[in-house]
Amino acid sequence: MTEDEKLREEAEEIRKETAEGAPEVAEHDRVAELERQLEEAKSKALYAAAEAQNVRRRLEADKEQASSYAAAGFARDMLAIKDHLDRALAAVSDELRADKTATQFLAGIEATARELDAAFQRNGVVRIKSVGEPLDPHKHQAMMEIPTGDAEPGTIVEEMQPGYMMKDRLLRPALVAVAKAPG
Rank of each mutant, 00 (worst) to 15 (best):
A66L: 15
L79F: 04
R87P: 04
A61H: 07
D62P: 02
E64A: 08
A80Q: 12
G73W: 05
S68K: 13
K63S: 10
L89V: 00
S67C: 08
K63L: 12
A88R: 03
R87Y: 03
A71G: 09
A88G: 13
Y69N: 00
A72D: 07
A91E: 09
D77Y: 02
D86N: 06
F74Q: 14
S68N: 00
D83R: 02
R76P: 00
A90K: 02
H84I: 13
H84R: 04
A80E: 10
A75Y: 01
A75F: 04
R57S: 07
A72L: 14
Q65G: 05
K63Q: 10
A66G: 09
K63A: 15
V92R: 04
R57W: 08
D83M: 06
A66I: 10
L79M: 04
A61C: 07
L85A: 05
Y69W: 02
A71C: 10
E64K: 13
F74I: 11
D86L: 01
I81A: 14
R87I: 01
L59H: 10
D83G: 00
A61W: 03
A88K: 01
Q65H: 12
E60P: 01
A70R: 03
D62M: 15
L59T: 09
D77C: 06
R58H: 11
E64M: 04
Y69L: 05
Q65D: 14
D62Q: 13
E60Y: 08
R58W: 05
A75E: 05
D83A: 02
A90T: 02
H84N: 10
R87Q: 15
E64W: 07
A72E: 01
A71R: 11
A90S: 12
D86Q: 05
D86C: 03
A72M: 09
H84T: 12
V92P: 06
A80G: 08
S67T: 05
I81P: 03
L85S: 03
A90M: 05
I81S: 12
A90P: 00
K63C: 11
K82I: 05
R58Q: 14
